[in-house]
Simulated assay, not measured.
Amino acid sequence: MQIVMLAYPDMTQLDLTGPFEVFSRFPEMKIEIVWKGQDPVRDASGLRIIPSTCLADSPPADILFVPGGPGQLALMEDEEVLAFLRQQASGAAYVTSVCTGSLVLAAAGLLTGYRATCHWQSLPQLYLFGATPVSERVVIDRDRVTGAGVTSGIDFALVLAARIFGDELARAAQLTMEYDPKPPFSGGSPVHAEPSLTQTVVAAAAEFQALREAAARRAAAKLAG
């Protein structure tokens, strides 16, 4: 089973490396990390990831995957990338994302008419593309599988693995990773966080979120037109 995972400048590396770690536990899965070239891609935190192949040489995907991150804004208006995603999605068994990667899929027209999720701060932007935003950690709608913010990537990959290989093998992978989270603080989502903390986080991200929404609106208008 061929997995094609898109990497790009200023992505959030955990969006990609979390699912990569899960998928790598299954020998049936062959993973390619793809970008426009094979020079190291610098993520938003400074980590460099080396693509294994370029877009032009990518094999057809059984599972197409897009991570999120600040670089998603540029990607929503990158016609080369959007065309690549459409072409790959046409033959894929699953079209998937984590965090704001779903907005990139949406900009390619690949989530119109689907239920999907995203990072909680950007979730409403899916409406712009004719998708139905769902505030859940992992959302499956037919062959679309999307994960919410950053850390949900591990959950997303385990849910998808269970769908493909069955619960027992997915549970074994979870155990080998010792994925048994007990976070030091409650409130890792706005549902459980103190309102004052949520307001602080929202205020800190307000300027960038305005840029993200503007980019989403431009992409949505182009898709509609």
Rank of each mutant, 00 (worst) to 15 (best):
G68Y: 04
A44V: 14
L126T: 04
G109T: 13
A93Y: 13
V95C: 14
S102P: 12
Q121C: 09
L85T: 04
C99Q: 01
P40H: 10
E80V: 09
S97Y: 03
L82E: 10
E80I: 02
T53P: 04
Q125R: 10
G69L: 03
Q88R: 13
L111D: 08
Q121F: 14
C54W: 03
P67M: 00
Y114R: 08
G46E: 05
S58E: 06
E77T: 11
V81D: 07
G91D: 12
S102V: 05
E77H: 13
I63Y: 09
A107H: 12
S97W: 02
A61S: 08
S45F: 10
A56G: 14
D78T: 02
L123H: 09
C54H: 05
S97M: 03
Q87F: 06
P60N: 12
G109Y: 13
Y114V: 01
Q72V: 13
A92T: 02
E79Y: 03
L47W: 07
C99H: 01
S122M: 09
P51Y: 11
G101S: 06
L73P: 00
C54R: 09
F84E: 01
W120I: 02
S52C: 03
L103R: 02
L110F: 13
D62V: 02
F65G: 00
G91Q: 15
L73G: 08
G68F: 05
S52L: 03
G113W: 08
E77L: 12
L73M: 10
R42K: 15
G101K: 00
P60V: 02
V104S: 15
S122R: 06
T117A: 11
Y114Q: 05
W120T: 04
G109M: 06
